[in-house]
Design a protein around this nucleic acid. Structure first.
Lengths: 262, 262
DNA sequence: GTTTGATTATGATAGTATTTTATAGAATTA
DNA sequence: TAATTCTATAAAATACTATCATAATCAAAC
């Protein structure tokens, strides 16, 4: 075999990036004598640790450009699924739309992929999303304000709720900790829940973004019954049974990832 | 095969623009060894992100709409003086205080130096300050919310003003673009001005932080007459004449930096 | 010692997506 | 008008994802 431990490859990839600012998959395939898949997996792993940014064909250093938020990049579970869900979500957004982006890692991915949209109004109670979108001149960014929850970097409380009541938006991209047919949408934290309830009230179309791990899970506080959702975007590992039952409730279901064989 | 990632091309195109003010499609075709279409797409993508302006045959830099240099550029000017002013400001803050930190590079420095304080409530309309303080568990952080101004990363508008009306704070650390005895405090931007006016109204003690370069300067919109200030913190290069006149108005003046010999 | 199973790392492949090129006709410039 | 540059579209090249198969590593259990 190649004779490199994956740790060594990671190290060398990072050094190359440091020196040149970017690497391509092919370069590294040659350099290490391993398959493309292996390099891709290396790059994905490094991206999850926040050490680089994947781009088509390779990866680049993720510094410079705008000032960087000092958040420690928390390793994201299911990053691939979340990115695909985000892509499907972005496809629903039209130029000129006004949207709400809820707090969450999936909605953060949506924000990342918003670069090409024109004339968007984005409202968010999430500090991280705000930092990401702040310098984009094509986006009119509105923060709800409120008390900042240290762990989530979400804004909650009276200010946030009141601010959201002021706006009617075309689309809400909502996250939830649990999705269950009986219990509906649930969240771990009461304050976030209250904010979500206002969002749902003031959106023309409610789009839930949730990877399949959230289904059947019941968290602590109830946000709303499941039928408030107009559209659900999730990954294809969702049980087909769920899909049927959701569609029976008149919820449009968008599955992404590898298309199931039919 | 060119061997360049599209990200790299974008980066290099921007650097070339930065250096020369313009690029042509043909130049870049030669530079990268790709087709014209590819370069055109690159330029279009960058234009959509607001980073350049397309013209027939190439692209040019798209600058010069704002009065003031963007936040990032400005934050380095007079850094030493600002840090000293910030240190003096932090000395005025007691554990348990509730304070407002206005938008500005000096107030940003104050935020940086807040690590050791206990049980503080900080209200701010500044996204950068928020990002900085968000993960500090000793600080209860409240964001005003509002529309985010892309250059300043400040929040303005109806939401911000209304939010500030809800809170009475012990101390306001205020910034201003211009300080003049006749014209009072002035700012370049009307929207920021309106927010500042609400802050001043709801603070028990108004503390102006402004390095000496701001004195005698008159910006575009009037915030308030100079006597709304209770305390002024500035650097020692301020003309002693100013100090006398300010003290005559019952404004406490704190000079910092190299202490003038006494 | 070796068998067994769990775990991890890697490679192969097929179908899907994305990016790039080529080309032809329209628009712009000089 | 001629030359250049642009847009749109389809075709080709390249890269990606998901999945499965294989191999290597390790730790009990026999």
């Amino acid at each position: 075999m190649s004779g490199y431990l994956s740790e060594e490859r990671h190290q060398i990839i990072l050094e190359t990036l440091e020196a040149r600012g970017s690497v391509t998959v092919n370069e590294m395939v040659e350099r290490f004598g391993v398959s493309e898949m292996t390099i891709r997996r290396d790059l994905d792993a490094l991206e999850r640790r926040g050490l680089l940014r994947r781009v088509h064909g390779g990866a680049v250093l993720d510094r410079g450009r705008s000032y960087e938020p000092p958040f420690v990049a928390r390793s994201v579970e299911n990053l691939a699924a979340k990115q695909q869900i985000a892509r499907a979500a972005v496809a629903l957004i039209e130029n000129g739309d006004s949207i709400i982006l809820d707090v969450g890692t999936t909605t953060l991915e949506i924000a990342r992929q918003l670069v090409d949209k024109q004339n968007l109004t984005v409202i968010t109670p999430c500090l991280q999303i705000a930092t990401l979108l702040a310098e984009n001149p094509n986006i009119r960014l509105i923060l709800t304000g409120g008390i900042v929850r240290p762990t989530e970097l979400s804004m909650v409380g009276h200010l946030a709720e009141r601010a959201l009541r002021d706006f009617y938006v075309d689309k809400l991209f909502l996250g939830a900790a649990g999705v269950d047919l009986e219990a509906g949408l649930t969240e771990y934290n009461l304050e976030d829940t209250l904010v979500k309830q206002v969002m749902i009230k003031n959106a023309k179309r409610v789009i839930l973004v949730a990877d399949s791990s959230k289904f059947g899970r019941i968290a602590f506080t109830a946000i709303a019954p499941i039928n408030v959702i107009n559209t659900l975007i999730t990954d294809h590992s969702l049980d087909p049974d769920w899909v049927k039952r959701l569609e029976k409730l008149d919820i449009e279901v968008i599955l992404c990832g590898a298309t199931p064989n039919e």
